[in-house]
Amino acid sequence: MYAYKHAYCETHIGNSDSWDSDWGNSSGPFQGGDTNEASSILNKGNSYEVQFFNGTGQDWAGGHICLSRDEAYASDLSNDDFHNDNDDDRGEANDAISSHRWVNPDSNNCDRWAT
């Protein structure tokens, strides 16, 4: 998974082949100023989906949006909104990602997709 500061995958922020429950702390593949900076995302993984969150912590709660391997990328997150399991709108995804995890496509964790 790759994240970029600007639309259309300009200015690489970071990448990860694992999860990171807080893009703003000092551990994990994303650190410090990486939180709330992504405007485009790329999934170059295997068959897993990447679930992105507007919150932090390993409870993986709050608003989320997903990117499947089949989709490959979302070039401009200003077109996408976070949602929770109750289908409530949780705000725009652009410059608002704070954590992510890889999920199995059969797990039903992903109900909203980045476009």
Rank of each mutant, 00 (worst) to 15 (best):
M1E: 12
H6F: 14
Y8G: 09
I13L: 15
I13V: 11
S16W: 02
D20S: 10
S21H: 09
S21K: 11
D22S: 10
N25R: 07
G28H: 06
P29E: 15
P29H: 14
Q31R: 15
Q31H: 04
G32N: 14
G33D: 15
G33F: 13
T35L: 14
S39E: 11
S39H: 09
N43Y: 06
K44T: 11
K44D: 14
G45H: 08
G45Y: 03
N46Y: 08
Y48W: 11
E49S: 12
V50R: 09
F53R: 00
G55I: 00
G55P: 01
T56E: 05
D59S: 12
W60C: 07
A61W: 00
A61R: 00
G62F: 00
G63I: 00
H64I: 00
H64G: 01
I65M: 04
I65G: 04
C66M: 05
S68L: 01
A72K: 14
A74M: 01
A74C: 15
L77R: 05
L77G: 09
N79L: 11
N79D: 06
N84Y: 00
D85Y: 10
D87R: 07
D87M: 07
D88F: 12
D88C: 07
N94Y: 07
N94K: 14
A96P: 08
I97Q: 05
R101L: 10
N104K: 08
D106W: 13
D106F: 14
N108I: 01
C110K: 02
R112D: 07
R112G: 01
A114H: 08
